[in-house]
Design a protein around this nucleic acid. Structure first.
Lengths: 120, 120
DNA sequence: ACAGCATTTGGTTATTTTACCAAATGACCA
DNA sequence: TGGTCATTTGGTAAAATAACCAAATGCTGT
């Protein structure tokens, strides 16, 4: 892996990190349906508005969204066209898996010595 | 946002979190070109093999890869078809952005190496 | 069963991420 | 100009992530 490759990978990683948080993913999915005002998010997300604002900043820095101020309000818009499609794909995948998986265990992180139950 | 939605979003987030690490992204991109042996990764990635193994485990738990043991060796294979396409898209986006950013900063076009701007 | 290689697991510590509160900034209107 | 609403920024503590080393497990050929 040479230098150029590494830089590129790290840049992509930044984008993925920006996506990899429930609140931010929620925001992205809302934006996939069109421009939205910050105020809408503050309303919908049960967290301090400073928290919401910081998540939006992360998305902006990653180049995933664009900002547009109009009057007192601030609107965000999605900036990557391939995103909705991909999230859809993940969604389907996850839905299939969780159907199968939830029959086996009740979703939790185990980092003790419990053996994997019969998976197969 | 109801319960069902939240669970779904969190499941998708897990997948994205799994992708959002340089080493794991590298692994995924290698796997996009076909099945690979763990030993290849250990060789290519400059990190302890236990580290590599843990990254592979994260990918596996996220449902992104499948394992296949043959003899003494362990092979991993990609399990989501939409992934390469999406990573490609991000890659292009990122390349454009960093090109644009460095043009602005340098006030000139650079043809050979695109330098990362000071902060990402 | 044993030696030897490949891979995973446990434990510990350093780093990064996140949430909340408080305070600052920016835009509009009386 | 000052008041008020919307949003961002700074600080801090709690939680999650990641790296390394050491040790355990698993498979194969003898």
């Amino acid at each position: 892996m040479n230098d150029e490759q590494r830089v590129l990978i790290e840049a992509k990683t930044e984008v993925l990190k920006a996506l990899a948080h429930p609140t931010r993913l929620y925001i992205i999915e809302q934006l996939a349906q069109g421009e939205q005002c910050v105020c809408k998010f503050v309303e919908a997300i049960k967290a301090d508005f400073s928290t919401v604002s910081k998540h939006l900043a992360v998305l902006k820095n990653a180049g995933l969204v664009e900002v547009n101020k109009r009057g007192q309000l601030v609107f965000y818009r999605l900036r990557m066209q391939c995103l909705p499609n991909f999230l859809n794909c993940i969604g389907k995948e996850v839905a299939e898996n969780s159907a199968a998986r939830s029959r086996i265990i009740n979703h939790q992180h185990r980092h003790n010595k419990v053996k994997e139950p019969m998976e197969a």
